[in-house]
Design a protein around this nucleic acid. Structure first.
Lengths: 242, 242
DNA sequence: AATTAATGTGTAATAAGTACATATTTATTA
DNA sequence: TAATAAATATGTACTTATTACACATTAATT
């Protein structure tokens, strides 16, 4: 902020009209909540009942409260919608086209969140929330398709560099499950031996000396993410990037 | 945005108190305007005259107008402050801690911009703007040091992947100049032969069959960035990432 | 007992990254 | 004008990472 803008802020605080000029922009957060289930990457959506978007789904979001940090607002949306609070969440980008919201000017800050669907009990029914396979989504309300695509792009960018993908898996998982998940996110087939070599070089995993159970084939070893890489808070990820 | 939040928006529009609840957050853009001069990476700063930050410098920013796109706001700041309009600009991150602005709640969206200092005539004197070597900056007003560091991190991340660095150089440049700039940004020494190999593999450059002049040593060849990579608009970069 | 569907493992070939030295060119200086 | 300074231009051996690819083994199911 600069001198001149502070000047403007002070002016805005004393004059009613200026105040409205500078403060009638709404600010929201929107969360791309991703889960992995039945071999697909899915996103949590709610049906839009806005006339403009009838029949379309939208991301989960809410307005930011004046006394609420950005991260707090996105965690609150998650908590309110899913009941979860110990989840991975990272800011991706602000979206602010003038026309993006039919009811007025709303700038939104997009976050993406990764959730282990199997392990957490979500309270989906209460809110008419549903998981939708990301690959089948053609159109969403507002600019939410663009937000979704941007967040998926960020996820793909992060996934080979940082151990974020494990937030989508249960604590114990096999290398097959992990590889399938990478393939679902990256949209490519990976060679099994090369994949295992690559993962083992990163040294993220701990062999816990347990085996898969209830699989209709030879069970694989189970692994877990090493403790030092378990960073669910967005803060940690942000620090890594800086 | 969801049903419930739209509900809230509509409520906010009709009730005075709720309106103030949801709309008394200020939104600004702040620009990390980077230039390269005299072998150093520099950032354009203005002296803060807020009491809270006396003696400190701050980034260039302004409030977003209700009828103004985010990108338009940051381009406007650049244009007003430097007179430039054909520059590289990319959004990095929103910063929204409750306490980040002493005068009230202000969420800011940070952009970074890359400018060829030698080629553009900046109107710096009018605004009391000055270039500061980024390596000498210890403290800035607001959370601007954190914003600067985050933007520099983003720049470092981009610089080997995408041809953005050329926005800091004149149209024609030698490989020595390019290497010095990479070194300034990345903070490392690079081997000259390996650097040239790496750059030539990327196939970004066009040999224009000209030589440096007025250098106190053997002149090097001059190169220019191939036309297909000249993307100054932030839009293009965003698309690449998605 | 046979079948199914996985697991677990290694090597050769190619590509990319790193470390490193010498002859050449131009401007400057003695 | 000869010597010096400061850079340019260029290649190879070594190491590391990536890719392509096949077979014996295990447990559950039929």
């Amino acid at each position: 902020m600069t001198e001149r803008t502070l000047q403007q802020l002070k002016t805005a605080e004393t004059e009613k009209i200026s105040h409205l000029d500078y403060f009638n922009i709404g600010i929201s957060v929107d969360c791309v909540i991703l889960g992995y289930d039945e071999k697909e990457l899915k996103v949590l959506l709610i049906k839009s009942d806005m006339q403009e978007f009838s029949g379309l789904y939208s991301l989960l979001g809410d307005f930011i409260k004046p006394d609420e940090d950005l991260e707090a607002a996105s965690y609150r949306v998650l908590k309110e919608r899913t009941g979860l609070d110990d989840v991975f969440l990272e800011q991706v980008k602000a979206f602010g086209n003038i026309t993006r919201h039919p009811s007025g000017r709303v700038i939104t800050i997009a976050y993406y969140s990764l959730i282990d669907v199997r392990n957490h009990k979500l309270q989906l029914d209460l809110n008419e929330l549903h998981w939708h396979p990301v690959n089948e989504i053609k159109k969403l309300a507002f600019d939410h398709k663009q937000i979704l695509d941007t967040c998926l792009g960020r996820l793909r960018q992060q996934v080979m560099e940082h151990p974020v993908i494990f937030n989508l898996l249960p604590e114990k998982f096999s290398l097959r499950e992990l590889q399938k998940l990478y393939q679902a996110i990256l949209g490519v087939e990976l060679d099994r031996r090369n994949f295992r070599k690559k993962i083992s070089i990163k040294d993220w995993l701990l062999d816990i000396d347990e085996m898969e159970v209830n699989v209709p084939h030879r069970p694989g070893k189970l692994y877990t993410l090493k403790k030092q890489y378990r960073n669910k808070a967005a803060k940690n990820v942000v620090l890594q990037m800086a």
